[in-house]
Design a protein around this nucleic acid. Structure first.
Lengths: 241, 241
DNA sequence: CGCGATATTGATATAGATCAACTAATGTGG
DNA sequence: CCACATTAGTTGATCTATATCAATATCGCG
């Protein structure tokens, strides 16, 4: 089941067997993309959307001086650029971070699908609004938290999202982002990210090393990052690890 | 026509007469809300969405220390909290800034509407993704621009959006946000917003006084704020004032 | 007409950027 | 499989944009 992680754990949003079957039927066979590959650039007209089966991708915008600002990190089970279906044209770039497995949903098939299954249409809509909710929290992070808070918040979000799709084991998860990437997500330089991670490590909250994140004290990490997971719309049991 | 400004000027997104008629028919009669009134708070379960006819509203999140971070400013023609329809529960607060006229769309009626007019459903979906696109640009603003750039970018966005619904006259528009509000949007203190506005005024780009914004040199303001209006998905003619 | 909210200006403090040097991984072609 | 190149991470010194604190001015409203 390619889409088994789609909306997994979202409160009252599980797909029916029939809906899932129908969704699977519009996807192309899976494809592997190499790491650090730009997939779509701002302005591209898109006629299909990318479902992420495994690996990490990101969406970002480029500044005038060539600096990147990540606007989201996509993890397995995410419909990366479903936004492109109603928008038709993308307002940001998309790239892989690690090697990824993806499958494509052609837009004309999505239209048929939604007309046949309006409820599934609402679920797809919902999934794009999860992105919007994460964007809002991202704005909060940049606007109101200091460096330690921003990184803590980001790591909490990732932890909870990956936990929902079974990618957390022993408080740890694989994390292909470099410190540079994390800085581009949090509006910080890689140098400062490095110092910030040291602070969090020395405080015993989290350890990031060798592309693996180990959360040692989720409670303290969450309160440092003012992380309240309601915006991820998970089932209650999942909401506070 | 209450909804005459809904999606106005968006490329190939105008509603058909029949669709507009149907949309109007689900709205309650207009209501007036006083300024600075909190309308919804984070966590509220919502069963209707608010269409903004006139006035300014905002969406925001509260930090632990009581600081607000605005995540969007809503202007006439916006479906303020249509996100609440697929999400059911809101992850942020909503308040008026100025006195506002609004009409409500009960969610059960929206469901009927969308099943009858799937294309209108896609337009409603599209309108929520415009918010997401603005959120992304907002992230870019906070993560990559300095104070002058952030304020410039925000003023450009507002100018273009208000222009599309006929609220710009002689390069000027009414602007009910205080410097404090603008700071809460841009992640700056009101003191620094004040100094930033002075810089922009002295550079001859824009003048903000008496709750009126006058854009004197849009081109320079846009380049200062790295403002590229494609993310607002307007018709081409509207894209560069 | 007076009082709270908003705007303005100045002085000082600080978080994070920038610049620079070095180390440790990771990868690649011979 | 090694030698070298490239990328990622680490640490220190200095600089700067913006916060913070403080005082005054002005506006808008009851």
């Amino acid at each position: 089941m390619l889409t088994e992680n789609f909306l997994k754990g979202r409160r009252r949003r599980e797909l029916s067997a029939e809906e899932r079957q129908a969704l699977e039927s519009v996807l192309t066979p899976p494809v592997t993309l190499p790491k650090r590959r730009v997939v779509t650039v701002r302005g591209d007209v898109v006629s299909r959307s990318t479902f992420l089966i495994s690996g990490f991708m990101c969406r970002y915008m480029d500044g005038a001086d060539g600096q990147r600002q990540l606007v989201s990190v996509e993890t397995p089970g995410d419909f990366v650029d479903l936004h492109g279906y109603p928008l038709q044209r993308l307002d940001h770039d998309i790239a892989t971070i690690s090697e990824c497995q993806v499958a494509y949903a052609p837009h004309e098939k999505l239209t048929e699908l939604i007309e046949r299954f309006p409820h599934l249409g609402r679920l797809l809509w919902f999934s794009t609004l999860l992105d919007a909710a994460m964007h809002r929290e991202w704005i909060f992070r940049l606007g109101r938290l200091d460096a330690v808070g921003r990184v803590a918040h980001m790591l909490c979000e990732t932890y909870v999202r990956l936990d929902a799709v079974g990618l957390v084991e022993n408080q740890s998860f694989a994390w292909p982002l470099t410190q540079q990437d994390l800085g581009e997500a949090c509006g910080l330089t890689s140098v400062h990210v490095n110092r910030t991670l040291r602070v969090l490590r020395e405080a015993g909250m989290v350890d990031v090393a060798d592309r693996i994140v180990t959360v040692l004290d989720f409670g303290r990490l969450a309160s440092t990052g003012e992380f309240k997971p309601d915006y991820l719309y998970f089932n209650d049991e999942l909401r506070t690890p």
